[in-house]
Amino acid sequence: DWLCNKCGVQNFKRREKCFKCGVPKS
């Protein structure tokens, strides 16, 4: 899993964008 750089929420590995704020995975 990965943490969003913008809002800090945890996302599933398969996600390419944050489910909460929509910022692309970096």
Rank of each mutant, 00 (worst) to 15 (best):
D1C: 02
D1G: 04
D1F: 13
D1L: 08
D1I: 03
D1W: 14
D1S: 00
D1T: 04
D1M: 12
D1E: 06
D1Q: 01
D1H: 06
D1N: 04
D1P: 00
W2F: 08
W2C: 07
W2I: 15
W2M: 12
W2D: 02
W2L: 07
W2K: 05
L3G: 11
L3W: 05
L3N: 15
L3I: 15
L3R: 14
L3V: 15
L3H: 15
L3E: 13
C4V: 03
C4E: 04
C4H: 14
C4Q: 01
C4W: 03
C4S: 01
C4R: 03
C4L: 02
C4A: 02
C4K: 05
C4Y: 02
N5T: 11
N5V: 03
N5F: 07
N5C: 06
N5I: 06
N5L: 13
N5Q: 12
N5K: 06
N5R: 08
N5W: 06
N5D: 02
K6I: 06
K6Q: 09
K6R: 12
K6M: 15
K6S: 11
K6V: 06
K6H: 10
K6Y: 05
K6C: 08
K6N: 03
K6D: 07
C7V: 02
C7G: 02
C7T: 05
C7A: 07
C7Y: 03
C7Q: 09
C7R: 02
C7N: 00
G8V: 10
G8L: 11
G8N: 14
G8C: 13
G8Y: 14
G8Q: 15
G8R: 12
G8W: 08
G8P: 05
G8T: 14
G8M: 15
V9R: 05
V9C: 02
V9I: 15
V9H: 07
V9S: 08
V9P: 01
Q10K: 10
Q10D: 05
Q10V: 12
Q10W: 09
Q10I: 12
Q10G: 06
Q10F: 08
Q10T: 13
Q10N: 15
Q10S: 11
Q10A: 06
Q10P: 04
Q10Y: 10
N11S: 01
N11H: 05
N11K: 00
N11G: 01
N11C: 00
N11R: 03
N11L: 00
N11T: 01
N11M: 00
N11P: 13
F12C: 14
F12G: 13
F12S: 11
F12T: 12
F12A: 14
F12L: 09
F12E: 13
F12I: 07
F12N: 09
F12H: 15
K13D: 12
K13T: 10
K13Q: 11
K13S: 12
K13V: 07
K13A: 05
R14Q: 14
R14K: 14
R14F: 13
R14S: 14
R14D: 12
R14E: 15
R14G: 10
R15C: 05
R15Y: 14
R15V: 13
R15H: 15
R15W: 04
R15P: 13
R15G: 09
R15N: 15
R15M: 15
R15F: 15
R15A: 14
E16D: 08
E16Y: 04
E16L: 11
E16S: 08
E16W: 02
E16G: 02
E16F: 03
E16Q: 08
E16P: 15
E16M: 12
E16A: 06
K17W: 01
K17L: 11
K17T: 09
K17M: 12
K17F: 14
K17C: 15
K17V: 07
K17S: 10
K17R: 12
K17H: 08
K17E: 14
K17N: 04
C18T: 00
C18Q: 09
C18Y: 06
C18H: 01
C18M: 07
C18S: 00
C18F: 07
C18E: 00
C18I: 05
C18K: 05
C18L: 01
F19K: 02
F19P: 01
F19W: 04
F19C: 05
F19M: 12
F19N: 01
F19G: 06
F19Q: 03
F19Y: 14
K20Y: 03
K20W: 00
K20Q: 06
K20S: 01
K20M: 05
K20H: 03
K20T: 03
K20V: 04
K20R: 09
K20A: 03
C21N: 00
C21M: 02
C21K: 00
C21P: 00
C21W: 00
C21F: 00
C21Q: 00
C21L: 03
G22V: 02
G22P: 05
G22R: 05
G22Y: 03
G22K: 08
G22L: 05
G22T: 04
G22H: 13
G22S: 05
G22A: 09
G22C: 05
V23A: 07
V23D: 08
V23M: 11
V23E: 08
V23L: 10
P24W: 08
P24D: 11
P24C: 09
P24S: 06
P24M: 06
P24Y: 04
P24I: 06
P24F: 10
K25W: 07
K25P: 04
K25V: 08
K25D: 04
K25N: 07
K25H: 11
K25M: 10
K25A: 09
K25G: 07
K25Y: 13
S26D: 13
S26W: 04
S26V: 11
S26I: 10
S26M: 11
S26E: 10
S26T: 13
